[in-house]
């Protein structure tokens, strides 16, 4: 399959999963996982910086339209995309690792992938909920939401990546 087509299919799948399934999870108001960020997490390592940022902005905007929140998701997803190269460098030891073409469980290994997921998800949910509350009132409540939602997102993302793991690296979630 064409590489661009794979990305579009993955994006559509993740957005529908987010809007139709994940957004209906309501556990006491604290747990709001957002797993569509997996799309930005799994873009190829060699993707140009501008394309990475523009995609994050665009995908965040789509989420904003669905959630009726102007600018909120795009701001959080942009920050996550901006920190992505640094996080990859931190985890793999080089900014353009030779043995990895895109971040995935089969290429980064279990430990690398789990820490990558945790860091990315924490950055996204942290900025998202802080921007959403837009104040330092009820900061404990906001922090609890950040921690619990990040854990929930990370678990769902890890489950997804184990479910669709494909050692030959040709499927939607290689």
């Amino acid at each position: 399959m064409n590489k661009t087509l794979i990305q579009i299919a993955r994006l559509t799948g993740l957005l529908l999963l987010q809007v139709w399934v994940i957004n209906n999870i309501r556990l006491g108001g604290y747990v709001n996982p957002f797993v569509y960020v997996l799309f930005i997490m799994m873009l190829p390592i060699a993707v140009p910086g501008w394309l990475l940022l523009i995609s994050a902005f665009g995908v965040g905007m789509i989420m904003d339209i669905f959630m009726s929140t102007a600018g909120l998701h795009s701001a959080a997803l942009l920050l996550m995309a901006f920190t992505r190269p640094a996080v990859i460098r931190l985890i793999t030891g080089s900014s353009i690792p030779e043995n990895i073409s895109y971040p995935s469980i089969s290429q980064m290994g279990d430990r690398g992938w789990i820490s990558y997921t945790l860091v990315m998800v924490l950055i996204y949910h942290g900025s998202l909920f802080l921007l959403e509350s837009f104040s330092f009132q009820q900061i404990e409540y906001t922090f609890l939401r950040i921690i619990l939602s990040s854990i929930a997102s990370a678990i769902i993302i890890l489950l997804l990546s184990y479910l669709f793991v494909n050692r030959s690296a040709k499927g939607l979630f290689p």
Binding site: A70, G71, S74, A75, L78, L131
Partner: peptide, 30 residues
């Protein structure tokens, strides 16, 4: 270009967000 593009897109997002932070503007930008 990476940092500059990030900053400008982030400014656009935050502007949109702050515009929606009042009831009537939430109505307008909706």
């Amino acid at each position: 270009h990476f940092v500059l593009l990030f900053i400008s897109l982030e400014i656009v997002s935050i502007l949109l967000l702050s515009r929606s932070h009042s009831y009537h503007r939430a109505v307008l930008t909706h």
